[in-house]
Design a protein around this nucleic acid. Structure first.
Length: 173
DNA sequence: ATTATGATGTACT
DNA sequence: GTACATCATAATG
């Protein structure tokens, strides 16, 4: 969760076939292996969550609700299953391309303001699962941009377990 | 082999 | 605020 806070204000960029798109990370959620809401709870490794056990900086993308994908950054050393869910991004790079990827959404502020919305808006392919974002040839890059002056803390949402853990973090716009 | 459920988004009332 | 789309995965038989 220290990483979840640290990622706020970072600029995430994706170099796709149609150009480069990206934006500033403004909301994240932390998941660790001692957390009942985590896909890797108790260190149980499955086909789906295997990327979470790679070393920090790897990418974990999973499919949910039969139609959506969510993007996570792995946060702990190899062998421990933990990651940060990227929940909200403010678009800054390749706005015209992002608009094309979100044809029915008029407000720029709603292009990437959700874990699956940002996958659609940035058009990130599920094949990036298990890639290493720290490697220079990775199409997905994450670089420091602006450090947020304050960080707000909330309960996580969309889960049914461990909702008491205040592991959702937001940077004010 | 079968079943329950989910780290959600969108449209509609 | 409520309803529903839609299916891979993981747990269970």
């Amino acid at each position: 969760m220290n990483v979840a806070k640290g990622l706020l204000g970072y600029e995430l960029s994706f170099h796709g076939p149609n150009g480069t798109v990206g934006g500033i990370i403004t909301e994240t959620e932390a998941y660790t292996q001692d957390d009942p809401a985590c896909h890797a709870y108790n260190g149980k490794k499955t086909k789906r969550n295997a990327p979470m056990f790679l070393s920090a900086g790897h990418i974990y993308i999973y499919f949910i609700y039969g139609m959506h994908h969510c993007l996570n950054i792995v946060t702990e050393p190899e062998g421990r299953g933990a990651a940060v869910l990227i929940r909200d991004i403010q678009p800054t790079i390749g706005l015209d391309i992002i608009q094309t990827n979100r044809p029915n959404i008029t407000k720029q502020s709603e292009w990437l303001n959700g874990p699956s919305k940002l996958m659609m808006g940035l058009n990130i392919p599920a094949e990036l699962n298990t890639a290493n974002a720290l490697s220079n040839d990775c199409p997905l890059q994450c670089r420091p941009h602006k450090k947020p002056p304050t960080i707000q803390t909330f309960p996580r949402i969309g889960i049914s377990k461990a909702t008491d853990r205040l592991w959702r973090f937001r940077a004010p716009i």
